[in-house]
Design a protein around this nucleic acid. Sequence first.
DNA 1: ACGCCTTTTTGCAGTGCCTGCAAAGTTGCG
DNA 2: CGCAACTTTGCAGGCACTGCAAAAAGGCGT
Lengths: 214, 214
Amino acid sequence: MSDASAPTGGILTEEQDADACGLRERKKRRTRGLLHRAALQLVAQEGLAGVTVERIAAEADVSPRTFFNYFPTKEAAVLGTTPESVDRIIDRLATRPADEPPLASLRAALRETLTPLLSDPELRATRRAVLQQNPSMTDALLGATAGLERRLRAAVAARMGRDADDPDAVLLAGTALVAVRAVLVGGGLSADEAHERFEHCFDVLAGGLGDLGR
Amino acid sequence: MSDASAPTGGILTEEQDADACGLRERKKRRTRGLLHRAALQLVAQEGLAGVTVERIAAEADVSPRTFFNYFPTKEAAVLGTTPESVDRIIDRLATRPADEPPLASLRAALRETLTPLLSDPELRATRRAVLQQNPSMTDALLGATAGLERRLRAAVAARMGRDADDPDAVLLAGTALVAVRAVLVGGGLSADEAHERFEHCFDVLAGGLGDLGR
DNA sequence: ACGCCTTTTTGCAGTGCCTGCAAAGTTGCG
DNA sequence: CGCAACTTTGCAGGCACTGCAAAAAGGCGT
């Protein structure tokens, strides 16, 4: 069923770099990918409640115990988020020029992150369906973004020379992720249209939401 | 320990209306409040993992099974969110004038909602501490807001005559809730300062985030 | 006060998530 | 090969959460 060679990036992530070094590392990535794909696939078919961790593990040919070496919860496996994917976004943000306005830096960093997410239409449709049909998965997704948001906020605050719970930093980090969500909820969009929507959202954020509406 | 007569509003809610009718209704509110307060108190002292549902139920003098008649999860009890509290916010939004710009309506509806949350400084400090010391509680809070966000989005989209996953509607609903969060994360603020922060956040949202930064 | 109906509480039994621990199996390297 | 580091696995167990049916309690008319 699952194709072990296909990309395995999670909903907040991108595909892992192909620069596998040792056998160990390659195997780990493969297993993580298998688990993610198995989880997504099964939940798409039978709903979140209808799939047990045991099933997912069996599908990926590992023991149930091993499942929890890769993902802390069943939902995390469906989303496919990994700690490294968050690190990467933070890294991207850090490499933006220091004098760039914070919102522009976020925009650039998240644009790069989003691109690979939009590349596979079928995968995108599956994720969308899973999120729509299992409301608690949306909760889990928002929960999963909490960690990213905190780190984005810290990075932005540092860049602006403010402290960590500065309201402007909260707004910047939070609204940037809202924009990402606004792109992901859109169904039936081509990759280009999704990108357009991304730019539109950040334009609106930059220019102000006050004039939206009739 | 717990004071049954004290306000019991959850983190997204306000105190329930005092217009209790029958004994039945009063008792339910009392029990819900007791459970919420017990959960918050115990988790503040011993951490989320250190407290079982059984303990919370015992503290509120109900059976463990009854706990789940009031809250779907342990985290929900700590947050104290109720379905009615979400209804109320939506109602508030619905009563805003139809020709008001959406962001202004959200601002007004959420301002009313926020006010009672800021009234009790001690409670606010406890909540803040619980959220800070238990990262997974932040995840739960974000997850809990997902339902509210969806409904806000639907209401805003309807008001604008767009469909439910219109990107502008997503932005409006999402960023408004980010503003609320920006107020709640601030520690050591007086109620007045918190309100100022609220207005500041919405001013920024309305005027644009593009110029934030150094 | 009494009985009747509705709502709420409770106990029970069960499923499944998730964890720590220690044994067994793999990989990397000299 | 042989040792060290790491990963997988099984096992035992705690706890969250659910459905079901019996018991308790509130609401209400007579």
